[in-house]
Design a protein around this nucleic acid. Structure first.
Lengths: 245, 245
DNA sequence: CGGTTCATTGATTCGCGTCAATGCAGGTGG
DNA sequence: CCACCTGCATTGACGCGAATCAATGAACCG
């Protein structure tokens, strides 16, 4: 029988992290993966585990960048705001993803928890000081930055040139691949974020996202049992609609 | 009196590059800037100077990434295509800018010359091999990647949430800052790219770009003498319209 | 049980795209 | 030298896809 969380907690139980990073659930995928035991021990001196409630702020846009993070469990939304409140979500982060720009002393975007989320928090200064001494770390950060850059360009193509239907299909495809369930006949995908989050990620409105999902449902390409769970009945059709090239 | 180029050349004279990189016009701003004389000499063994005619291809999307580049003079457009030919320009590159992703063995975007352009071409493999031996180089590449990432997010915000007028104003502001003429009363900006390039960069059509420029002209915010030259009469108004935050 | 948040659906509006025509500059060949 | 072509920018008429405005329903919660 599963351990029952206290009611006032309001979210799933957190994984018990082993005190040494060696037992951490993202040891194999975080930036720490690039380190041997000796260097890991040095990094460990900079870190603290923090838990964030759903909807709460991790990073305030424009604030001094004191800390950087690795997502351990849960998910975050990264966004920018215009003066009148228009919001654009530039990405979602999941376990293993790195959050923050090492060389910027101010954060250029905001970050909030989508779900209850556990983060591994570093002192940015400490990390910067460590970089020259641990070349594999800088190497890993460059690899991460390259991947993010490629993802950002995918998003630029989507926002600049794709239709609403193509955007939604691309988004479903993204979640599908993230679930590691590509090339199956049928895929069940969890949607932790709201329609408003999806809309602000795809440069649309909640209404358009909802209507587009409904039309995909009517076309028997997806199944919408609950709003937070989508079954992709025909992944090939989603891929075609996404205009992936 | 200026040296006259041969007519069949069809473009402005190229700067005479000193044989050693030390005399190169972008020595102070390219990735080579991060190197001392000894390491520069090692990098120099990997390079070749290449000239590209206007409109010609530098990188084919999806091709094997044999070479990387530094822009020496001129300008490039970086773009992605959808299967049906829709194009999204993800950025323009200018002297000093780095072109290519060091760790990708395939190019994920295309690149073409906007104007006659001179490039400093590296062997990618050679550069990768050099990285572990020259930490400042990797450091510099990470800094560049961070800046590009920030620029990409600006673009995502623009494409996802800004109106046509705001996009065009943002673009003018970008050129204005690039010209290093910020905070002047009046700024003259050269536009080397066509309206189609601007449209594909801003996620619009040539007609909308043209109409928006005309409306800015009618509002006495800019002056359009030639299509390739814009005078910004009221930079403050452009900044306001750009919804910069 | 009333209040709040979120998703869905419908009616209507509007910003920008599409289609089409014109003008202008530069290049080419007779 | 001029007629013709081609590429690019501009402008106008019209249509459409997605936004806006509005209402309803479902889930959750104190």
């Amino acid at each position: 029988m599963q351990f029952k969380v206290k009611a006032d907690c309001g979210h799933a139980p957190r994984p018990v992290l082993g005190e040494p990073c060696g037992h951490c659930v993202i040891r194999g995928i975080g930036i720490c993966h690039s380190l041997g035991d000796f260097d890991l021990e040095r990094l460990r001196k900079l870190i603290r585990i923090v838990n964030i409630e759903p909807g709460h702020t991790v990073i305030e846009e424009g604030a001094a960048a004191e800390y950087l993070f690795n997502v351990v469990t849960g998910s975050l939304r990264i966004f920018r705001l215009l003066a009148d409140g228009r919001r654009q979500i530039t990405g979602f982060l999941f376990p293993g993803d790195f959050l923050g720009l090492v060389f910027n002393d101010r954060h250029v975007y905001g970050a909030e928890a989508v779900q209850a989320t556990t983060l591994c928090q570093f002192s940015r200064r400490g990390l910067v000081d460590l970089l020259p001494e641990i070349p594999p770390l800088e190497h890993r950060l460059l690899q991460d930055a390259t991947n993010e850059l490629t993802a950002a360009q995918d998003q630029i193509l989507l926002l600049g040139r794709k239709t609403a239907k193509e955007r939604v299909a691309s988004f479903l495809q993204l979640l599908e691949h993230r679930a590691g369930n590509a090339d199956k006949d049928k895929v069940v995908v969890d949607i932790p974020m709201t329609r408003a989050d999806i809309a602000d990620y795809l440069g649309l409105t909640t209404e358009t996202v909802s209507r587009t999902l409904t039309s995909l449902k009517n076309a028997k390409i997806i199944q919408l049992t609950e709003p937070t769970r989508i079954e992709i009945l025909r992944p090939g059709e989603i891929a075609r609609l996404a205009s992936a090239n």
